[in-house]
Structure formats: structure tokens, C-alpha cells
């Protein structure tokens, strides 16, 4: 049996990194392999996802420009033929935008204060 592989990144201009690190460490402690990328452009995230054959792409965003970022990322993933990967977003998103993210291809969203155990469970169940 394989291990769940996760890519964890955040938009390059977003200086909040605690959430990304906390979640990355939690997933590692749950037995997953986490490729920690820090701040990256969508194109860099998409190339990495392809080369690392990750099951999950996690994006941590606490700044207000997540719409542009995720629009670009989801379209790149489609172009590369890897849109089937579980795309999970965490951090600060305006409630009205959450349905739009889902439409775009984001599979799950975790707001500030989310229980870490529920994140692990969500990923385990989401990766078939």
C-alpha cells in the first residue's frame, strides 16, 4: 500500500505561514509524505504536483487575492490533465466565495479554527 502524498503551498505574496506549517506537520504526523513548498506561483505548484505525483494539493491563503490565484491554479491543473487530485484550501475566505471555489474545482475548504483531526480525516477519506 502506498502513502498519501501531499503538496503544501501558499501564495508567494502571503506572509502568513503558520497555518501551512501546522497543517503540514499534522499530516506528516498522520503518516503522510508532505512536500512543503512555501510561497509559490500557481505554475510552480502545478508543475510540482505533476512531478511529485501527489494525491493532495493543499493551499493555505490568508490574504484577499485567493480568487485570482486559485482560478489560475485550477485551470493549469486541468491543462496538465491532473485536475483529479484532491485540492484543499485553508485560511481566510469570504463565505460568499466558498461556493465559487467549489465550482472552480476546489474540493474542500477549512476556515481558521478548523479542527486538525477533521482535516486529517477529510484527506484520508478524500483520497480513494
Amino acid at each position: 500500500m502506498g502513502k498519501i502524498r501531499v503538496l503544501m503551498a501558499k501564495p508567494g505574496y502571503d506572509s502568513h505561514f503558520r497555518g501551512a506549517v501546522v497543517v503540514a506537520t499534522t499530516l506528516r504526523n498522520a503518516g503522510m509524505e508532505v512536500i512543503y513548498l512555501g510561497g509559490q506561483q500557481p505554475s510552480e505548484v502545478a508543475n510540482t504536483a505533476l512531478q511529485e505525483d501527489v494525491d493532495v494539493i493543499g493551499i493555505s491563503t490568508l490574504s484577499s487575492t485567493y480568487m485570482e490565484y486559485l482560478t489560475e491554479l485550477t485551470s493549469l491543473l486541468k491543462n496538465k490533465g491532473i485536475a483529479e487530485k484532491l485540492l484543499v484550501v485553508g485560511g481566510v475566505v469570504i463565505p460568499d466565495d466558498v461556493p465559487k471555489l467549489k465550482e472552480m474545482g476546489v474540493d474542500g475548504y477549512f476556515p481558521p479554527g478548523s479542527d486538525l483531526v477533521s482535516i486529517v480525516d477529510y484527506i484520508r477519506n478524500g483520497v480513494k
Binding site: 506528516r28 504526523n29 503518516g31 509524505e33 508532505v34 512536500i35 512555501g38 510540482t48
Partner: peptide
């Protein structure tokens, strides 16, 4: 726990 942070790539 069998997990890993793979950080060389960064």
C-alpha cells in the same frame, strides 16, 4: 509515524 516532510525541493 511513517510520515515525512520532504523539504529539499524548496
Amino acid at each position: 509515524h511513517g510520515g515525512a516532510i520532504l523539504g529539499d525541493r524548496i
